[in-house]
């Protein structure tokens, strides 16, 4: 009876099965041709990447499994996961990989695609930060920490601002929090340079 209830009230269950029609092997081939993503198919699945990754313990799929998902063409799992956003770009996986796969660059490529097709996990603050950062730098040529954090918090979790007050005050007191909005002189030229060259 107890076991039955435990089964019944289980909040979420995930099917661990894949039909081959869910796979998109062509997409896998495409990814492998992007700069920085070569060598995907030489992966040994040895797990060195996950083992060296400081964040794999928090990831929904460890880096090895991301490579596996991409290689098999399970696009939505690879693009919809938290893993790619948790990657802090420390490049430990890339320099340790016995096949010299540049896993960090693969992660970047997946992040870009996830944003482009809006497949990233909603209310996850990291993609929000990236987009806010992108906005500020594209507008002004430089980032300003205060404004960046403010905008990120407003767009993800305004309550978070309360928790940031302490840290903010400590930085302000030591002269490390500038309210100045940094901007470069030739911001128009920069924008011209960037204009029309989007592409992920």
């Amino acid at each position: 009876m107890k076991a039955l209830r435990a089964f019944w009230f289980r909040p979420e269950m995930r099917r661990k099965m894949k039909f081959q029609r869910e796979a998109d092997p062509e997409w896998a081939q495409q990814v492998a041709q992007r700069p920085g993503c070569e060598g995907l198919f030489s992966c040994l699945q040895c797990g060195t990447c996950s083992g060296t990754c400081p964040l794999s313990i928090y990831m929904d799929f460890a880096p090895r499994r991301i490579i596996g998902l991409v290689r098999e063409g399970f696009r939505e799992d690879a693009l919809g996961c938290q893993t790619i956003w948790l990657c802090a770009s420390c490049y430990a996986c890339a320099v340790h990989c016995p096949r010299q796969i540049r896993i960090t660059d693969v992660m970047y490529s997946l992040k870009r695609e996830a944003l482009q097709y809006k497949l990233y996990p909603r209310r996850f603050p990291i993609p929000v930060l990236a987009q806010e950062f992108y906005g500020i730098v594209s507008d002004r040529g430089r980032s300003s920490e205060f404004w960046l954090v403010l905008r990120m918090a407003l767009h993800s979790n305004p309550l978070q601002l309360l928790t940031l007050i302490g840290t903010g005050w400590r930085l302000f007191r030591t002269g490390r929090l500038s309210l100045h909005k940094e901007q470069i002189e030739h911001v128009k030229e920069l924008q011209a340079e960037l204009a029309g060259r989007r592409g992920t």
């Binding site: 040895c46 797990g47 060195t48 990447c49 083992g51 060296t52 460890a62 090895r64 340790h96």
Partner: peptide, 20 residues
């Protein structure tokens, strides 16, 4: 594949082998 070998944090002289 073992990814790292390092001394245990509790100072008991053992080594930690870390791997996925």
């Amino acid at each position: 594949k073992a990814a790292d070998v390092y001394p245990a944090g509790n100072g008991d002289g053992r080594l930690i082998v870390q791997a996925e």
